[in-house]
Computed example of a mutant assay.
Amino acid sequence: MPSLSLRIVGRDLPGRECGGYRDVHVAVQRGREAEGAVPGDAAEAVWEFTVEVVALTDGARDFRGPHVHGRRGGRFLYLTWGELRRGGEFTMFRRAKLMLDDLPPHAVDRGAAEAGLRLTDRCGMPVCAAVRPPGISWS
């Protein structure tokens, strides 16, 4: 299976305290676990990992790997927001979906893509729900 190197760059984080939450962090979700937690007051959050690209018999593509969630035709990556407790326990309170069907075909063909997105919504809270262009730009 060919692989696709992904780089996710989040900017404009909401801060360490917002909406009653304390010690806010954002991470990429790998399986059920938060991976690479970044403090909510960082200048930016960057994650890099690889997903597998599968050619389907109908000519479509599918994505697989420990960071990939959802059903075929609706795959996505999760950015998970949580409070990082003493001892390293991450307690999730919100997630954002980065939809893989928004990836440009030329980036998939090339085997590398980068996403840029703002991590604070219009209300000053962590971005959540499905994030699609123009809320995210893939290159």
Rank of each mutant, 00 (worst) to 15 (best):
R110A: 14
V68K: 04
R11T: 15
R11S: 13
W47K: 10
R7I: 14
V46P: 05
W47T: 10
V54Q: 00
G40C: 10
V127N: 08
T80H: 04
K97W: 01
L13I: 11
Y21D: 03
A37W: 08
V9P: 00
G70V: 08
H25L: 00
A113L: 01
S137D: 05
L84N: 07
G70N: 03
G74H: 06
G59A: 10
V108T: 06
P134V: 13
R22V: 14
V53S: 07
E17V: 14
G19V: 10
A96V: 10
G36L: 11
L4Q: 08
H67Q: 14
D109V: 12
W47H: 11
R72P: 06
E52S: 14
H67T: 11
L100W: 00
G36S: 11
E48H: 11
H67F: 15
A60W: 00
R30M: 10
F90C: 01
R72H: 05
A112Y: 01
R72A: 09
P39F: 03
D109T: 15
M125K: 10
P133Y: 06
T50N: 03
A130H: 13
P133V: 12
G31E: 04
R7F: 02
P134C: 13
V51Y: 00
W81E: 02
H67E: 12
A60H: 09
Y78M: 13
L84D: 03
L6P: 11
F90N: 05
A60F: 01
R72N: 09
W47S: 04
D23G: 09
G70S: 01
R132D: 08
S137E: 10
C18A: 15
G111C: 06
E35F: 14
C128F: 06
F90R: 04
R86C: 08
P2D: 12
E114N: 03
A115Y: 01
A115S: 13
S5K: 14
E17G: 04
L119D: 09
A27S: 12
R118I: 14
Y78Q: 14
L56E: 01
A130G: 06
G59S: 12
V38W: 05
I136C: 06
W47R: 07
V68T: 07
G82V: 08
M99D: 03
A96P: 04
R64I: 00
R30K: 15
L119V: 04
S137I: 09
G70Y: 02
A42R: 06
Q29N: 04
P104K: 12
A37V: 05
V68P: 02
R85T: 02
G74L: 05
R85H: 09
L4W: 03
E48K: 14
T91R: 15
